[in-house]
Write a protein that binds this DNA or RNA. Sequence first.
DNA 1: GGTGTTGTTCGATAGTTGTCGAACAAGGGT
DNA 2: ACCCTTGTTCGACAACTATCGAACAACACC
Lengths: 101, 101
Amino acid sequence: MEPHEPDLTAVPVTAVLAALADDVRLQIVRALAEGGEAACGSFDFGVSKATRSHHLKVLREAGLTRTRAAGTSRLVRLRRDEVDKRYPGLLDAVLTPRPPA
Amino acid sequence: MEPHEPDLTAVPVTAVLAALADDVRLQIVRALAEGGEAACGSFDFGVSKATRSHHLKVLREAGLTRTRAAGTSRLVRLRRDEVDKRYPGLLDAVLTPRPPA
DNA sequence: GGTGTTGTTCGATAGTTGTCGAACAAGGGT
DNA sequence: ACCCTTGTTCGACAACTATCGAACAACACC
């Protein structure tokens, strides 16, 4: 099935924000921003693979990531340029872990 | 009771994003960004006053707004400087309504 | 073909959230 | 004192969401 990767302009901003407003997903996005393309299985943040698949789906359908098949794996990457173009500063503001002070 | 307006540094990013990830709240924030200080009642976006009060509470507890009493009203304002300082670009990226194209 | 790896999908469930009406509280006016 | 305006708080309810295990699909490799 087609992975359903909408254009960012077709996604309401609230959906983009909601996609980023989850701790697990934010960790995934941060890992992608640092490490580039990565397999789904490389994100072990203490959740089951079913949950991980769910989170990746949310990110994908929010227009934040792109997925392509590679053997038995699927490689995910952040659509950084597109996000930066439509929401300048958003990823920068959100990606870096902030000290509590 | 004290209105509980936490410092932004004490609020997790996900809570800030979640606060912005709602259509009604986003409209409130946009109105505040444009019009400055405003009474709670001035935000009529098709929800009851109970719901409106709830949304304002979410924004306040996310560290995004400040509230002060003024007669029978309460005046709300956006903590723009503080938000911009901690999350540069976030409000700019999110505040302006984007055309679907 | 069989086995193992990698993900997705399907219920199910528990928790969270948006919404409302009604009740309550605090002020201002008359 | 009385009423009206303005907000908050309190259940209640529906909708959504994060989570899991189990079942399934696709591919690689032997």
